[in-house]
Design a protein around this nucleic acid. Structure first.
Lengths: 191, 191
DNA sequence: GTCTATAGGGTGATAGAC
DNA sequence: GTCTATCACCCTATAGAC
């Protein structure tokens, strides 16, 4: 049985991703986490505290993910693109938390803290990609492609049917100086 | 003096982009548009109608922008990337409307209509890029890079200081089959 | 056409029992 | 630690004056 605190954060993430910030009320979060509203407010004294808790989780997971990017067996770009694509995130990984936090990055007062946390995540991702790619512009392009995929997930727009992440990666690999050996048997790029 | 209807939509966009959907209440929109709440509700009978009005504007502007992409003097990619970068959108252009609509793309009932409108925009952009680039995967990469820049604008994350849109475009141009002649005197890529 | 006033529903937060 | 009950507030939408 996982702790109530984590269940609450999981529920908050799920509601933010699936139904947006307007539906992620304290009542709805408590219900989804199977806690009473009072129980929720025992763990997180206010809605701001709930947001702060989610940001803390984001920072933890982002740091762990930066390591995962650096040590990914098929290379940083492969890992980053795959985890950015719709459905690519693991439960418990950064991706879900990141997508949830994106939805509360508004211009409000607490939104400021959210944006600062996101800036840190972006910088960590970039550094991890840069560590493998050396070329700053190339690292940036790789990150932007991944971020574009995040935006697709965010809006729920399906990927064009004739385009696959494998094809995307195969093409990007062409532009990269030299990714670590082997690979996972990607299809050859037909173009 | 522009019509009240357009002023209301402008104000709604501004609030969505600057302070998020939670702050874009009818009161706030009316105040920002310098109309009374009753006056606002005369033009848009409900909040849903306001959203619908914004989606209509998005569709109009997206169609116009797809043409602009196709006829851009420095090429489709140049145009798309530049208008996607933070600060690249013109007032009255798609970019602002698009960024505003992104914020209301939740999983609610009206959110469904929002997501469908966004899917149309994405498809139109892709087709316009594809028309110039021929290669589908390349068109997709160009679009994703632009979308990554949108995500940066959305979260307010500043671009890494050593990275400029000009450098990004110079590098991407290398990968493109052959962009229309001339260009705007872009700096040579130092790498 | 544009406004004021108000009804009705929902949200965040507190108090206090167990 | 977790729950129920309740308050004060804000938001959407309507009714009706001008």
């Amino acid at each position: 049985m996982t702790g109530a605190r984590d269940r609450v954060l999981d529920a908050y993430e799920t509601l933010l991703i699936g139904h947006g910030p307007g539906s992620a009320t304290l009542d709805a979060v408590a219900a989804a986490a199977e806690v009473s509203k009072g129980g929720l407010l025992y763990h997180f004294a206010s809605k701001d505290a709930l947001v702060t808790g989610l940001l803390d989780r984001l920072r933890e997971r982002s740091a762990a993910d930066a390591d995962a990017i650096r040590t990914a067996p098929d290379g940083a770009v492969d890992y980053y693109i795959r985890t950015s694509a719709p459905g690519g995130g693991q439960p418990g990984g950064v991706t879900r938390t990141y997508l949830a936090v994106l939805r509360i990055a508004d211009g409000s007062e607490t939104g400021q803290a959210v944006r600062e946390a996101l800036a840190v995540v972006h910088a960590e991702e970039y550094d991890a990609l840069h560590a493998e790619l050396a070329d700053p512009v190339l690292a940036w392009i790789a990150q932007l492609v991944g971020d574009g995929l995040y935006l697709r997930t965010l809006t729920g727009t399906p990927l064009p049917t004739e385009l696959t992440v494998d094809a995307l990666l195969a093409r990007m690999r062409r532009y990269l100086p030299d990714t670590p050996a082997g690979g996972r048997g990607l299809p050859e790029d037909p173009a």
